[in-house]
Design a protein around this nucleic acid. Structure first.
Lengths: 220, 220
DNA sequence: ATCAAGTCTGAAACTTGTTCTAGATTAGCG
DNA sequence: CGCTAATCTAGAACAAGTTTCAGACTTGAT
């Protein structure tokens, strides 16, 4: 029964992934391994930049990064894992870049909106890459949860940074989660051509109002 | 070049789909065709209910609905199209059901949250089906835009119904869009096991506050 | 330096979405 | 009714993600 076979395969995959994710320091990669990993992520981002999700073909990634297909799958157990890892990589860059020039807005809401719009403009420069990463992120199933969660934490960190809020209240954390939801979904609608850039901007600004609404000193 | 071949294929597909979507009345299906379409959607929902996105295999759908594979593809040009159509179908049901018992909340925000939570509970009864539909929806690319847009309009209608707002302001429409974003994205996080039911509830309630914030008579 | 364990490679095989083809069936029309 | 175009069917073929395997190469420990 093929369906059953696939299910078993997935179970195995999950186990493997969790083993690695649970103890990232337990498998200290050698230099050459680190280099391989880098080459793979680079090839992935390159192919994605060219043609989006569909253009990232595992065989091509393997070839571009000078690695056997089996090895590619050892490093990243699925195409989705690979693209989510690519996103993690890009997000780190982004966070570093954003840190350098903190947003200037008066209110926390303004600063968050400004930061997200800056990130959005960065994504617009590589729309195909954005497509690949965001599609992978929202298509990911449970087997990729740890990695997707990591991306989510990183995004949260960026937003909290912009808020300049050291100890957010639970209410504020809810607002931040909602902002992230809006951010991802708005990106999707933009990428699939159902919303304009202007509309994304409005949506971001709209949702950011929630921040002021939940500010500890501005309780209604 | 295989990539190019695929691109061309997609272009063709888009053209075909638009032709049908642009003039739904231009192709009045015969009775048997209508029956076939129904059988296909039914099989799709059935398989999805059983095992989610992965369990909806085109060959199986074709077999279950007593239709040749080529015919299935004539009716629904891709698996994503099929699942989005399945979602349209389910949404209509849902809208009908929700209409029967209007929400009881005092404020518009409460009523919308109540309605969405009711829909959420319905989805919880068939989590695999929800998985298949929502994943398809967010994974859909430009070639499915018309259909996805239709789903979006239907969702908007449900929310506006709950608000009891005949003539929403542009500001309110923004709020509704943000609510939809949050709705979809929160569902995804729940389906992939990264958020609990309680968390989804909080997020929905949080985002619904935007409605009161943008109510025409409650401008701050 | 040597051995065992783990890793990498190249290639083939398998799965499932998608396309294609040749022939049978059906629908609509004169 | 009889024709023609459209539709449907069965089945092969193809594309890309994923798995598997045998053999070559590295690594780390003794």
């Amino acid at each position: 029964m093929p369906a059953e076979a696939k299910v078993n395969a997935k179970v195995n995959k999950v186990a493997k992934v969790e083993a690695r994710a649970a103890a990232p320091a337990s498998a200290p990669l050698t230099e050459r391994q680190e280099a391989r990993r880098r080459r793979i992520l680079h090839a992935s981002a390159q192919l994605a930049s060219r043609g989006g999700f569909d253009a990232v073909q595992m065989r091509e990634v393997a070839e571009s990064s000078q690695v056997a297909l089996g090895t590619l799958y050892r490093y990243f157990p699925s195409k989705i894992h690979l693209l989510v890892a690519t996103m993690q990589d890009q997000l780190e860059h982004m966070h570093g870049t954003l840190r350098k020039k903190p947003p200037q807005g008066e209110t926390a809401a303004e600063r968050v909106a400004e930061t997200l719009m800056r990130a959005f403009r960065a994504l617009q420069r590589e729309p195909h890459l954005a497509d690949a990463m965001v599609r992978a992120l929202t298509f990911a199933d449970r087997s990729v949860s740890p990695e997707v969660d990591q991306v989510s934490r990183q995004t949260t960190a960026i937003i909290l940074d912009a808020m300049g809020q050291e100890n957010p209240t639970p209410e504020q954390l809810s607002a931040v989660r909602v902002i992230e939801h809006t951010w991802h979904s708005a990106l999707i609608t933009w990428l699939s051509g159902r919303a304009s850039i202007a509309q994304v901007k409005i949506d971001i600004e709209t949702v950011c109002r929630l921040i002021d609404l939940t500010a500890p000193d501005a309780r209604k």
